[in-house]
């Protein structure tokens, strides 16, 4: 039974307007093949283990969590400080329930396709008036490709028929990609760096598979259930001291120009670095090793955009 497939989902965000056309619901899948140093959703990195988020500011040191966690002993209060042994946490949620101050939160949830679909389809009327739909993000939805494919297939069934999109690192085997392509209208794929070594240094993996998959995507003709071909948007997160140089942009533009034979590349989107996720690192008990330089200047953005324009590639930022 396909319906029995469960997915690990760590957020479902309605009224998302930056992740494809119209008004959309963004479903966050847990697990990512990359571990980028600037990741803004670190709670979605691990494929299985739920991430326990702790907001120190709300903690009153009442000790109810310590009591609730007596089996695992993951919570301790030592000299007016709340300590969490992350390795001992099994994500049972009992501390979250016990905390009177809402200082603890467990992000992920195991959900069936029906459950996710029911939430997504609550906003059908908004998709109809806006041309919007569903976007799978994360983490990386392709880490749970069977579940993703199942969900997207249901979104394309006659009673729903909504626009579908995915945001992915692209770093999975082509086999996984093939599972979802028949049900997909739009794919956002990142190119973080054109240099293998640099890519590996900052994201934990090299870019070979990603670039190969992008080549395949750009030459994929049409999907089976949608009338038009899949649109591709390449996203480049611009990270200071990493990929804001002209040389990398030039290589990237040349690569895209060369491979976009089916003209399925809609545009390249430049996303300037932001620090919105930093707070979460604290809450997860992780250290943040993002770039030292925080600001991507307007000039840098314009400079990089110009390179793509020179290669006749539309660029938005």
């Amino acid at each position: 039974m396909k319906d029995s497939i469960k997915g690990n989902i760590f957020n479902i965000q309605k009224f998302s307007v930056h992740d494809g056309p119209g008004i959309r619901t963004l479903v966050f899948f847990k697990g990512c093949p990359l571990s980028c140093i600037w990741c803004s959703n670190p709670e979605g990195l691990d494929p299985i283990k739920p991430a326990l988020q702790f907001s120190k500011d709300y903690c009153s040191l009442c000790g109810r969590c310590v009591h609730a966690c007596s089996k695992q002993n993951a919570h301790k209060i030592v000299e007016n400080e709340h300590q969490i042994e992350r390795k001992d946490c099994i994500g049972c949620n009992s501390c979250v329930e016990a905390c009177p101050n809402i200082a603890l939160k467990l992000a992920s949830k195991e959900m069936s396709v029906d459950e996710v679909l029911a939430l997504v389809m609550q906003d059908k009327v908004f998709y109809e008036t806006s041309g919007g739909g569903i976007t799978l993000g994360g983490g990386d939805p392709l880490m749970q490709a069977d579940f993703a494919a199942n969900l997207l297939m249901r979104c394309k069934q006659s009673e729903n028929k909504i626009n579908t999109a995915i945001e992915t690192s692209g770093c999975v085997s082509w086999k996984e990609w093939e599972k979802i392509l028949p049900y997909l209208d739009l794919a956002f794929v990142d190119i973080k760096h054109m240099d293998e070594e640099q890519h590996k240094k900052y994201t934990g993996v090299d870019n070979k598979r990603i670039l190969e998959n992008i080549c395949k995507l750009l030459s994929t003709k049409t999907s089976t259930t949608t009338s038009s071909s899949i649109s591709i948007i390449i996203r480049i997160p611009l990270i200071p001291d990493f990929n804001t140089d002209e040389e990398n942009a030039k290589k990237c533009a040349e690569f895209l120009q060369k491979h976009d034979v089916q003209k399925t590349l809609k545009y390249v989107e430049l996303l300037p670095y932001h620090e919105w996720g930093v707070m979460k690192y604290q809450q997860l008990g992780l250290s943040y090793n993002g770039p030292k330089e925080k600001i991507v200047t307007k000039e840098t953005m314009e400079k990089i955009a110009l390179i793509f324009k020179e290669h006749l590639i539309q660029v938005v930022y």
């Binding site: 119209g22 008004i23 908004f126 008036t129 806006s130």
Partner: peptide
């Protein structure tokens, strides 16, 4: 999108 919200 705002128009879409209003229409919905």
């Amino acid at each position: 999108n705002l128009v879409a919200l209003l229409k919905a």
